[in-house]
Design a protein around this nucleic acid. Structure first.
Length: 437
RNA sequence: GGAGAGAUGGCCGAGUGGUCGAAGGCGCUCCCCUGCUAAGGGAGUAUAGGCGCAAAACGCUUAUCGAGGGUUCGAAUCCCUCUCUCUCCGCCA
């Protein structure tokens, strides 16, 4: 959420910034509502002030044992007028909030301007693209060939966009997550975190998934009944652990000395993938359920741009240790996610697609999420002030597995296991059919 | 699932219809005293808005005592609904 003060005092700046991400701010509607709000809020507060003074007089008179009918006569019709005014004000403020909640974050000045994916700016490349003297197979062909990857059965259980991994492939998948977690905990100073996979409406609102992107989520029922009813808000499966980890500081005032907070968690993620019909239908790239190791930083506003560089570095470390070629891309203004002020994507080389594919996305949300969450810290002067939040994948486990299968494939259909993962695989150095079980 | 008790400011805790945004304490900030240490004295210290001012300082004002609704001229206090926490019992990985 943007600062309402910024909209009031510097609307043109906001409009221009937003247009760079192809978002057109409803200026006229906003101005109209603001004008009404101003008028009605003032009116309401005048009525409230009047009521308060008179009520005090009543109390005073009664304590002296005086007659109060004369005073009470003054407020006889005030109640209705006030109620009406309050209702009106609430309607306007609800509408203003609706507008405000749907407005994405403003891009940072360092973000490349552009209209779409093609305008993203490559920052650096790492690793040599492997060459193969045999016909390259994609991860589906490799995994199914090894009889370790099974989409058909998963479809029977759950439908499209699910998968079953077995044997050493399932183990490799687990090894990857462990390896990532260990690296971030031991080498990068993160707090290992186990957090809920089901979260409430407020949490999703805090990080910006709601109200705008509900169709991307899975909501759950309890005992055959929808959890959500008029009194109890519903639960949703997390689309990313960013939601659980970032909301740890929702409605909190974090002591200055405990900043920065750095959380890491390995969780499943659930996405409905509405609107992506026909995209990446084959394989593990785009699933309704996938595992991710997520990194979250909660920082002092002054250090958030240093933090995003650090965060990207942490994610890159994983790829370097696994010796997977990748590139880092700065997303352009139009390609960034809703809550981000600046985003770097890390894209890993996939030989079968002959292209780099997103494997991590690291964003600085500045105070955008913190303002929604009321996540604050007590600053040097003892005043509360909004935190900055960042999140990034470190990394998407399923896609990392895809990258390993494809980049480490051998002519005989086997797959070499990267050195760093062998300790997690009981020393195993290859996935092959014979040893697959 | 059954029975009961709770939810108040950064923290603890008082407050059952009227100068209560809230006693007292802790913590914190500033000042004074004390030649260290310990202790003592004084003042200040919630948050989010609105309006005014070119702006800051500031002034006026509104809302907020778990959440939402209701009663009332007036609600932390009374009524209803919900959420959460704690204790006991049952069930359970």
């Amino acid at each position: 959420m943007l600062d309402i003060q910024l909209l009031r005092t510097n609307l043109n700046y906001v409009i221009e910034k937003l247009s760079s991400r192809n978002f057109s701010f409803p200026v006229d509607r906003f101005n109209q509502l603001e004008a009404e709000r101003k008028k009605i809020q003032t009116h309401t507060q005048e009525l409230q002030a009047k009521r308060n003074t008179i009520s005090k007089q009543v109390g005073l008179a009664k304590s002296k044992g005086e007659d109060t009918t004369a005073i009470l006569a003054q407020v006889s019709n005030l109640g209705d007028a006030l109620k009406q005014s309050v209702t009106q004000l609430e309607q306007i403020q609800t509408e203003l909030q609706k507008i405000l909640f749907d407005v994405p974050n403003l891009p940072h000045d360092s973000v490349p301007k552009g209209d779409g994916e093609t305008d993203n700016q490559e920052i650096r490349r790492w690793g040599a693209i492997p060459s193969f003297d045999f016909e390259i197979r994609d991860h589906v062909s490799i995994g199914e060939g090894l009889k370790l990857l099974d989409f058909e059965t998963a479809t029977k259980l759950s439908g499209a966009r699910f998968s079953i991994m077995k044997g050493n492939l399932a183990r490799l998948h687990r090894a990857l997550a462990q390896f990532m977690l260990d690296t971030h905990i031991q080498e990068h100073g993160y707090i290992e975190t186990y957090a809920p996979y089901l979260v409430n409406h407020d949490s999703l609102h805090g990080t910006g998934q709601l109200p705008k992107f509900e169709e991307d989520l899975f909501a759950v029922k309890a005992g055959g009944n929808a959890v959500e009813n008029e009194h109890s808000p519903g639960l949703y499966l997390i689309p990313t652990a960013e939601v659980s980890l970032t909301n740890i500081v929702r409605d909190e005032i974090v002591p200055l000395q405990s900043l920065p907070l750095k959380f890491v968690a390995h969780t499943p993620c659930f996405r409905s993938e509405a609107g992506s019909y026909g995209r990446d239908t084959r394989g593990l790239i785009r699933q309704h359920q996938f595992d991710k190791v997520e990194l979250v930083h909660i920082v002092h506003p002054e250090s958030s741009y240093a933090a995003i560089e650090e965060l990207v570095g942490h994610a890159e470390t994983i790829l370097q240790k696994l010796e997977l070629p990748y590139r880092v891309v700065a997303l352009c203004t139009a390609d960034m996610g809703f809550s981000a002020a600046k985003t770097y994507d890390i894209e890993v080389w996939l030989p079968a697609q002959k292209t780099y594919r997103e494997i991590s996305s690291c964003s600085n949300c500045e105070s955008f999420q913190a303002r929604r969450m009321q996540a604050r810290f007590r600053n040097e002067n003892g005043k509360t002030s909004l935190l900055h939040t960042l999140n990034g994948s470190g990394l998407a486990v399923g896609r990392t597995l895809v990258a390993i299968l494809e980049n480490y494939q051998n002519a005989d259909g086997s797959v070499t296991i990267p050195e760093m993962l062998r300790p997690y695989m009981n020393g195993l150095d290859q996935l092959c059919t014979a040893g697959g079980q």
